[in-house]
Amino acid sequence: FGMVVGDLKKRYPIQKVILVGDRGMVSEANLDQIRELGMEYIVGVKLRKSKKAQELLSIRGPYKKVLPNLKVKSKKIDGETYVLCYNPDAEERDRASRQVVLENLQSKLDELGPSGLVKNRAYSKFLTIEKASAKIDEEKVSNDEKFDGKYAIRTNSSLTDEEAALAYKELWRVEQAFRNLKSNLELRPMYHRVESRIRGHIMVCFFALVMESFLAYKLKEIGCQTSVKDILHDVSQMKASKIRVNGEEQIVRTELQGQANLAFEALVTQAPPRVLEKNTCH
């Protein structure tokens, strides 16, 4: 890991870099190496398993609002800032999901008894086993409620709580980019064997990703709610044909239709996009 980061620092002479990583990506050993390299980081924490992070749950006082669906609290612990992030929408989803599990659990208990459920993690965490019987443990249910809509991050950076939370929230864009490379842009499977062709294939996919990201940015800038995926679908419906006119070959294509037509028309004119009947671009 240290070699990779060191190589990146040599190739890209950027003055300040903050590494952002998900909960399962960064170990304590990696964090030690990042600190030794004099770099900063923002990483996710497994809130249910980290005693340090769980100290955040006992912080009194209101959350600081960052976005309608993001509020934060923080605490300095062993030289790092731990930030508790709270999403009210996710809290509702977690509560509803648990309720479904509990209803199914009681039904399964009545039907199968404890033996058929103890190996199911979704069920067993709410159970208390006593000899040959089992019942739903209300204390465990109450404890689980404390985590509804919450996740934690830790950072050694000088960013504010709000900035750190927003930076971590943007991690999904990187993950989406990798998904696009593997699926939409068809980075894999790769059928080339010559190194130059492999490099060329990856470069073309990278340029496509940059263009897709730029298109998404421009659509947002003009207020168009249509997704890039929908536009690319409409573009894929275009057909090209080779025809001969007066003895000369020409290539003609079908017209751009649907959301793609409206979006590109708006991009050219920089005017608010017109609306189709389905109202998907407004």
Rank of each mutant, 00 (worst) to 15 (best):
G2P: 09
G2R: 14
M3A: 14
V4F: 13
G6E: 15
G6Q: 15
L8Y: 15
Q15F: 12
V20L: 05
G21H: 12
D22K: 04
D22E: 08
D22Q: 05
V26K: 02
S27F: 06
A29P: 07
L31W: 00
Q33M: 03
L37W: 00
Y41Q: 01
I42R: 01
V45E: 04
K46C: 05
N69V: 08
E80K: 11
V83L: 06
D89P: 00
E91R: 11
Q99S: 09
E103H: 01
G116H: 09
V118W: 13
K119C: 01
A122I: 07
Y123K: 06
A132K: 14
A132D: 15
L159D: 03
D161S: 14
A164L: 07
L166G: 05
Y168M: 11
Q176D: 14
A177H: 02
R179I: 03
R179Q: 13
M190C: 12
Y191W: 03
H192I: 04
R197A: 11
G200S: 12
H201V: 06
I202S: 03
F206R: 00
F207Q: 02
A208D: 06
V210T: 08
S213P: 01
S213C: 08
L215P: 04
Q225H: 09
Q225S: 14
H233N: 07
S236Y: 06
Q237M: 05
Q259N: 13
A260E: 07
N261V: 05
A263C: 12
F264M: 10
A266K: 06
P273H: 01
P273V: 05
E277A: 12
K278I: 03
